[in-house]
Amino acid sequence: MNYTYILKCKDGSLYTGWTNDLEQRVAAHNTGKGAKYTKARRPVELVYFEEFETKEQAMKREYAIKQMARKDKLELVRRKEKADDRSE
C-alpha cells in the first residue's frame, strides 16, 4: 500500500508527502530524518492520509494536495476528522 499524508508541524504549518510505510515515515519525520522542512518543525502530527495501490497514484495525489491553498488542505483534515468521529 502507498500513502499520501499531511502532517501538522509544531509551528502550525502543514507538510504533505507520500510513502509506502506510513508509521515508519512519521517516526522518521519526528526524529529529524524525514524531510528538511520538518526537521526544524518537530514534533509533527499525522492529521490526514489516503491509501493508494501504486506509488504513482500516491505521488500524483501528493502533487495535487501541494497545489491546494492552505484552507483547502485544512478542509480535507476537517472532513477526515468528522468522518472518523462518526465511525467511532
Rank of each mutant, 00 (worst) to 15 (best):
M1N: 09
M1E: 13
Y3H: 06
Y3D: 02
Y3I: 02
Y3C: 05
Y5P: 03
Y5D: 05
L7M: 06
L7S: 07
L7Q: 05
L7F: 05
L7E: 01
K8S: 14
C9K: 12
C9E: 12
D11V: 01
D11Q: 07
L14R: 03
T16F: 03
G17D: 02
G17C: 09
T19C: 02
T19I: 02
N20G: 06
N20I: 02
N20T: 10
N20W: 06
L22Q: 03
E23K: 14
R25Q: 04
R25P: 00
A28D: 13
A28H: 06
H29F: 00
N30T: 02
T31W: 02
G32P: 04
G32D: 05
G32A: 04
K33M: 05
A35R: 01
A35G: 00
K36H: 13
T38C: 04
K39W: 05
K39S: 10
R41Q: 08
R41H: 15
R41P: 06
V44L: 00
V44W: 00
V44S: 01
E45D: 11
L46H: 05
L46W: 01
L46G: 06
V47G: 12
Y48M: 09
F49A: 04
E50L: 10
E50S: 14
E50Q: 14
E51M: 12
E51W: 05
F52T: 03
F52V: 04
F52L: 07
T54C: 00
T54Q: 03
K55I: 09
K55W: 14
E56Q: 14
A58R: 02
A58M: 04
M59N: 11
M59F: 08
E62R: 10
E62M: 07
E62T: 10
E62S: 07
Y63P: 03
Y63Q: 14
A64H: 08
A64W: 06
K66F: 01
K66M: 13
Q67L: 13
A69Y: 13
R70D: 15
R70Y: 14
K71Y: 14
K71I: 13
L74Y: 10
L74K: 10
L76M: 07
V77K: 07
V77A: 09
V77L: 08
R78N: 12
R79E: 13
R79L: 15
E81V: 09
E81L: 14
K82V: 11
K82H: 15
K82E: 15
K82I: 09
A83E: 15
A83F: 01
D84F: 08
D84G: 04
R86G: 05
S87H: 13
